[in-house]
């Protein structure tokens, strides 16, 4: 994937030079291993800072919300699905955008890699399917497939679903992945086990809201957690309030979540809150045959009615 960058830069420069866009949104190299920072270029010279590697897990669709400019945006498969959702929900218009599609080979899981090493990680470099980690002065090669973000490991839409430019040849989509193994594991638990599982999952949460703020779907002017009249949920650290935040946030993503994994990646304490949204994503897929953001023309299941919608739950 490292070789994409020349093409990304070439396209971005061209778009800025011929004034087809006013800015291009991409990533630049961060100051720490496994961290890239979302950034923008307004001039062809700014494009020099752009990078592309396996640390571009933040979903750039998040940076489009309500912008007025004409924008070029570097977008992975999941990013394009969220851009489509943004367009459907009128948060940006198709005419404003030039989508530079990136056929993605998966992003690496910085939380997981950090836990594999006792020492502080000094550098992480990549070479195709190999990830080289230097920690405590020692170099260790890892297989990229072993350290992919959990959502990337089961992703079946690596290629952009729509685009204006393409940064590379399309990649082969992953076949035979068990997309919902993690959800099924929880579904098999009994009620008490389920309760305890989520209780321990959420115990490190500090309510920084990085998950909801990294999510392109969370764009409400005032989030329900911040409402004071009525106060839907307590603002402190009571476990009931923490859980209310997480599960209501998930509900608001029903039929919209693309499982891009930005929430989990953004979490400073490494909570896999995808197990909430993933359950809804699975339900939408099983009950409505719906995957969010696959088309610009189809309305999402929660704002359409069809006579054969499942309704077994109404007694």
């Amino acid at each position: 994937m490292l070789d994409y960058i020349d093409k990304i830069k070439e396209i971005s420069e061209r778009l800025l030079k011929d004034c087809s866009v006013e800015m291009v949104i991409g990533f630049r190299k961060g100051t720490l291993p496994m961290m890239n920072e979302p950034c923008f270029a307004r001039t062809p010279e700014d494009v020099g800072q752009f990078v592309w590697d396996s640390n571009c897990g933040i979903n750039l669709a998040n940076y489009l919300t309500d912008r007025k400019e004409r924008i070029g945006i570097v977008a992975k498969g999941c990013d394009t699905r969220n851009i489509a959702t943004h367009i459907i929900e009128n948060k940006i218009s198709r005419e404003q955008l030039v989508v530079i599609g990136v056929p993605c080979k998966g992003m690496i899981d910085k939380h997981k890699i950090a836990t594999l090493f006792a020492d502080e990680i000094q550098t992480v470099t990549e070479n195709g399917e190999k990830i080289l980690v230097t920690a405590g002065g020692k170099e260790t090669p890892l297989n990229k497939s072993d350290v992919l973000q959990k959502n990337c490991a089961v992703c079946t839409h690596r290629n952009p679903v729509f685009y204006d430019e393409l940064a590379a040849e399309k990649v082969e989509e992953q076949q035979d992945v068990d997309r919902y193994a993690d959800v099924q594991e929880i579904e098999a638990m009994d009620t008490q086990e389920k309760w305890d599982y989520f209780e321990s999952l959420l115990s490190p949460c500090i309510r920084c809201y990085a998950c909801k703020n990294a999510c392109p779907l969370c764009y409400c002017p005032t989030c329900f957690v911040d409402e004071a009249k009525p106060q839907w949920v307590g603002k402190g650290q009571d476990p009931t309030d923490v859980r209310t935040f997480h599960f209501l946030r998930a509900f608001h993503c029903a039929g919209r979540c693309t499982d891009c994994g930005a929430c989990e990646r953004a979490c400073p304490v490494g909570i896999n809150m995808r197990v909430f949204t993933k359950k809804l994503e699975k339900d939408c897929f099983e009950q409505f045959g719906w995957e969010a953001g696959m088309s610009l023309d189809e309305r999402p299941p929660l704002d359409t009615y069809r006579p054969n919608d499942p309704n077994d739950f109404i007694k």
Partner: peptide, 30 residues
Amino acid sequence: MNLMEHMGIESDRIHFSWISSAESTKFVKV
């Protein structure tokens, strides 16, 4: 409802019914 059950709330605590104002017997039954 599925998500409530998924995170460990007993599904028997959550009920959805469609009852017309004319269906008093159904209301009582539910």
